[in-house]
Amino acid sequence: MIKLDNLHKYYGTGAQRLHVLNGIDLHIREGELVSIMGSSGSGKSTLLNILGLLDQYDEGRYALAGQPMERLSEKQAAQYRNRMIGFVFQSFNLLPFKNALENVSLPLYYQGMSRKARSEQARHYLEQVGLADRMTHMPNELSGGQKQRVAIARALVTQPKVILADEPTGALDSVTTGEVMELLHRIHGEGNTLVIVTHEPEIAAQTQRQITLKDGRIVATPDGIAPSATEEPA
C-alpha cells in the first residue's frame, strides 16, 4: 500500500541544513496496523506528513496504492489527500462551529458530494464509532474521547486507502486511550491500513509492527523488536 525507497528530507539550507529523514526504506502492506516510535525530534511527524502528502520529500521514491507520488501540484496533492488518506490528529482538529455530523461530512464536501449524500454517509460512520446519539452536538459539548472518535469517523468517511494518526491518544487519559485504541483495532479488523505515530510503548505494543526512527533512520527490525525504544527515556 505504501512504498518508500531511500527517502530523504531536509529542512533549511546551507550550514543550517537539517537532515531530518536520512534514507527511509519502508513497505507497508494493505491491511497492516503499523506504529512509528522514536524520540522527540527523530522525524516521526515529518515522515507521517510526507506519507500524508502534506509535505514534500527531497530524494527517493514514494508510491501510494501503486501510484508514484512525485511532483504533485498543490491541487493534485489536495485531491489525493481527500480520496486516499484519512488523518487523525493529537488535538482532534474539529471545526468548533460545526456539529459532529457536519465535521464528519466536511471531506465529502470537497468531493462535490450533495449535502444529503454527505449527511447520510457521515451518519453511518458516526454510528460506527458509537456516537449515534451525538450527531448534532458541537465539539465543545463532547468529551476528549468523543471528539477523537468524531475525528476518526471523519478520517473514515471517504473510505481512504490509509489512515494516518499522529499521536491519536496523546491528549487522552488512560481510560479513553483504551477506548480509542479499541476503536482503531476494530477499524483495522475491517481491513483498513493504519499508521500510528506514538510515544507510548503500550500503544506500539498493540500494533502488528513497530517501526522506530532514530536520527532520521529506521532502526527497528520488521519483526517488532525495537532496540532503540528501550534506550530512550519515556
Binding site: G52, L54, E74, K75, A78, Q79, R81, N82, R83, F87, N93, L95, L106, P107, Y110, Q111, R154, T158
Partner: peptide, 16 residues
C-alpha cells in the same frame, strides 16, 4: 489559519 489548514489537509484545493 487552523481551520484553513485543516480544510486543506482534508482535501480543499487552493482554488477552493
Amino acid at each position: 489559519t487552523r481551520e484553513i489548514g485543516l480544510r486543506k489537509a482534508l482535501g480543499a484545493t487552493p482554488m477552493s
